[in-house]
């Protein structure tokens, strides 16, 4: 059965929002995720769909920046997959080897999928979003202060 265009655009929007939340959780500090779980509690029990695991992802670049891809080198990645009791399955992938943070992110991913809890999860993540955007703004400001205007001098003829 084909879904209507409206349904599929809703599904796309839902997925894009979930991707955005997962991106924030991939960048959150372990302590931030722990604090959010405490704040959202009490929580249903979470069981591992498979044990949290550290592995490698091969990163790629593109020849010339925009051409054919090549393998650049690997990065460590931790992943977790859980199911909340009577709830959704949650997943997390993060750079680094912090399995506890990956599992916390997977629990938050599952909680976010529960409509009754979504707003609370988004609220709890707001300070993390703000921190990340402040940090990026600081980098831009610091870097902008080093912007240079070179000018060329014409050499004398003799």
């Amino acid at each position: 059965m084909q879904s209507s265009p409206e349904e599929s655009s809703n599904a796309n929007a839902w997925r894009a929002t979930r991707q955005g939340v997962m991106a924030v959780m991939a960048r959150a500090e372990s302590a931030e995720l722990d604090a959010i779980l405490v704040r959202l509690g009490p929580l249903p029990a979470a069981s591992n769909l498979k044990p949290p695991e550290v592995g490698l992802v091969m990163l790629r670049g593109r020849t010339g920046g925009d051409g054919a891809p090549f393998n650049l080198g690997e990065a460590t990645v931790s992943r977790a997959a859980i199911r909340l009791e009577g709830g959704a399955a949650g997943f997390a992938y993060r750079l680094g080897r912090d399995l506890k943070a990956a599992r916390a992110a997977a629990i938050l991913d599952a909680l976010w999928q529960d409509e009754a809890r979504r707003a609370a999860v988004e609220d709890a993540l707001a300070p993390v979003r703000a921190r990340l955007s402040d940090e990026a703004a600081t980098v831009r400001t610091e870097t902008a202060a080093t912007k240079v205007d070179f000018f060329t001098l014409v050499r004398g003829e003799d």
Binding site: G55, V57, M58, L72, E74, T76
Partner: peptide, 12 residues
């Protein structure tokens, strides 16, 4: 470590 897979090419 096990290999999980390949990332999308970085966009510089």
């Amino acid at each position: 470590l096990p290999r999980f897979g390949y990332a999308k090419a970085l966009d510089t």
